[in-house]
Design a protein around this nucleic acid. Structure first.
Length: 270
DNA sequence: ATGCACTCCTGAACGC
DNA sequence: TGCGTTCAGGAGTGCA
């Protein structure tokens, strides 16, 4: 699924179901996700009580009273949802508490799960190199300006680089660039600071609005409750090739950048 | 150091 | 209805 708003939505959905609950069993049905699961993952989590659930970039973090943190990434198609009865073919992990069973479902198996000591979780190799949280205080306009300086890569690619700012994916990068009026193909280092300032603001506003709407539901994403997110109805450019730009009426275009689709307005985005 | 193509896997949507 | 093709929100790896 998922970019930052979807992961945040999942984390918020998991908290009331898991925090304070004892994991009566954690069953691994398939261990070959993006990376092999730790062989003792089920054993180490079974019997533990969940103490807190957080998020870093697109990673979810589930802390237990044993000092372990389960780090998960949803990849492209990962989701959590209730599992009643017989597990489905793509239900790879089952978390059972007194409140019922929660399944981690992931048809494409691009997702991953890792265990780390809670005190070390942020130093995990997958998390250590991440850039600032886009909604946090550390992500300022000046940080974005400094990251873009001298870079010849397209601004869209820069936004997808998780070491620059952590949590944007293809959809919200497109949407933020639309909101800022910047052409996705423009070389990052050639964009004036004032315009990057607008982009910085657009990133934060776009992500915050998406979280408020419960994320976007394209294909795989749903909230843990099964409710869809609603933000896709507010996409201004993403997935709207040929439709009129909501700002100026020109036809939205689509182009390939580094193998990914980018949608933009040729008139508004320069 | 930087930029980019490739790769993993499955399902849904589309065209014929 | 059935079949083949194309595409999908991520991101590490390896190459130029």
């Amino acid at each position: 699924m998922p970019e930052l708003p979807e992961v945040e939505t999942v984390v918020r959905g998991l908290r009331p179901l898991l925090v304070g609950e004892r994991l009566a069993s954690v069953i691994v049905r398939r261990a070959d996700l993006r990376w092999p699961l730790p062989v003792d993952l089920g054993q180490r989590l079974t019997g533990a009580t969940v103490t807190a659930i957080g998020r870093r970039a697109k990673y979810g973090l589930i802390d237990t009273d044993r000092g372990d943190t389960l780090i998960f990434h949803l990849g492209m198609s990962g989701r959590f949802g209730p599992c009643a009865g017989v597990p489905g073919a793509h239900d790879h992990l089952l978390f059972t508490t007194a409140r019922g069973t929660l399944a981690y479902t992931d048809p494409r198996r691009f997702g991953s799960m890792h265990l780390a000591p809670t005190t070390e979780a942020m130093r995990h190799p997958l998390l250590a190199g991440l850039g600032p949280e886009p909604l946090g205080d550390a992500f300022t306009a000046a940080v974005l300006v400094a990251a873009a300086r001298g870079r010849r890569t397209p601004i869209k690619a820069l936004l997808l680089d998780q070491t620059i700012v952590a949590g944007l994916g293809n959809i919200y990068a497109s949407e933020a660039l639309f909101a800022a009026g910047i052409n996705p193909a423009r070389m990052a280092g050639a964009i004036a600071a004032a315009r990057l300032g607008r982009l910085h603001l657009a990133i934060r506003e776009t992500l915050a609005a998406a979280i408020e709407a419960g994320g976007s539901s394209l294909r795989d994403h749903a909230q843990v409750s099964g409710e869809p997110g609603y933000f896709q109805h507010r996409f201004q450019s993403y997935g709207r090739e040929g439709e009129p730009c909501p700002m100026c009426g020109a036809a939205i275009r689509r182009r390939e950048q580094a193998g990914r689709s980018t949608f933009y307005c040729p008139r508004c985005q320069r």
